[in-house]
């Protein structure tokens, strides 16, 4: 018995999170007849995949003890850039150029974030908030009030197409998930991320290149936001500077529900998947049940607070 408890104990948080997810899922199956249809489940998964992509990036930053508020603005700016590039040629070549440009700019934003945090010693909350302001300002500046739309079929395939009957966003999210999961669990970089997040000073003294790890993490987060931006722009078939205003909050909420600690060094990718699923299931369920859209906002707020409470580490405070 004790042997099993030893196996179980470190996974208790994941288990309780899974239980919460299962309870939400089952109650939706019982309450709403249209929920359990294959079409709706695929729809839920497709919406989840986008939240998941952004949440993984933010989760990486939270694992090193930081946070990334700039991802929504990054998605807005990169999609505007794509619109600009696309307008030039409206061909496959301009599409590839646009996508390359999107990824390059998102890496640049990540570098700026990392630079502010590592070399200017800014708290991550402020650094990424400032960068978010600048990036969204640039997005507005570049559009001058235009909305780009009507992209080519090729590009729309990324967000709206299907491969073997599975929507592309899901495939992209799963691939991304596997890569990040592998990186975190099996590579030196992943080990460094946890070490830096747990205790930055001791990581530094044990010879881990802390600054490099931090910058790489923020670049990765922005890069993943860039990829999410491609998928989102393609799915929306439009680019405008207002998109993504609440993406950062949703992503952080998903990561927090998934047990990624704000102090860093604690949490895994599976938790983020559960967090993103819980958020999407709740909003999808409310829509199916015909809950008034005004109330949906508040109920999602209650769900965020309650589902973080499931975590053992978040439960009772003594001081």
């Amino acid at each position: 018995m004790k042997k099993y408890w030893g196996l179980l104990k470190p996974r208790l948080d994941t288990l309780s999170r899974l239980t919460a997810l299962a309870i939400i899922f089952l109650s939706l199956v019982i309450v709403s007849p249209s929920f359990a249809s294959a079409a709706n489940i695929i729809n839920v998964l497709r919406i989840t995949s986008l939240t998941l992509m952004m949440a993984i990036g933010v989760a990486l930053c939270m694992l090193v003890g930081g946070i990334d508020l700039s991802i929504g603005a990054t998605i807005a700016l990169t999609s505007i850039l794509f619109g600009k590039f696309f307008q030039v040629g409206q061909s496959t070549a301009s599409m590839i150029m646009g996508i390359t440009g999107m990824l390059a700019v998102s890496i640049l934003i990540g570098l700026v974030n990392g630079f502010c945090i590592v070399f200017l010693h800014l708290p991550p909350f402020l650094a990424t908030f400032g960068v978010q302001q600048i990036v969204r300002g640039l997005a507005y500046l570049l559009t001058s009030g235009l909305v780009y739309s009507n992209f080519t079929e090729d590009f729309r395939f990324i967000g709206g197409g299907q491969l073997f009957g599975i929507p592309m966003p899901i495939i992209i999210a799963v691939i991304l998930l596997l890569i990040i999961s592998f990186t975190l669990n099996k590579t030196t970089f992943g080990y460094r991320v946890y070490a830096v997040g747990s205790n930055r000073e001791s990581a530094r003294y044990s010879g881990i290149p802390v600054n490099k790890t931090l910058i790489t993490t923020y670049v990765l987060s922005s890069l993943i936001a860039g990829i999410a931006g491609i998928v989102y722009t393609s799915r929306l078939n439009a680019a405008e500077p207002t998109i993504g205003a609440e993406f950062a909050q949703t992503a952080i909420a998903a990561a927090a529900i998934g047990g990624i600690s704000f102090r860093g060094g604690n949490g895994n990718v599976l938790g983020v998947v559960i967090g993103a699923l819980i958020l999407t299931l709740v909003s999808n369920g409310m829509t199916l049940l015909g809950v008034d859209s005004n109330w949906q906002v508040g109920i999602s707020g209650v769900v965020i607070i309650l589902s973080v409470l499931v975590d053992r580490n978040a439960s009772v405070r003594k001081t």
């Binding site: 946070i67 909050q249 952080i252 909420a253 927090a256 704000f262 008034d292 005004n294 109330w295 949906q296 906002v297 508040g298 109920i299 999602s300 707020g301 209650v302 965020i304 607070i305 973080v308 409470l309 580490n313 978040a314 439960s315 009772v316 405070r317």
Partner: peptide, 27 residues
Amino acid sequence: LILARTKIPSFIVTLGMYKICETFSRV
């Protein structure tokens, strides 16, 4: 109450409260 009694980060609690306020305001 929530922040003093639990270890949930203030970011999450106040974000949830923000949404609750917005809902009441809209209703």
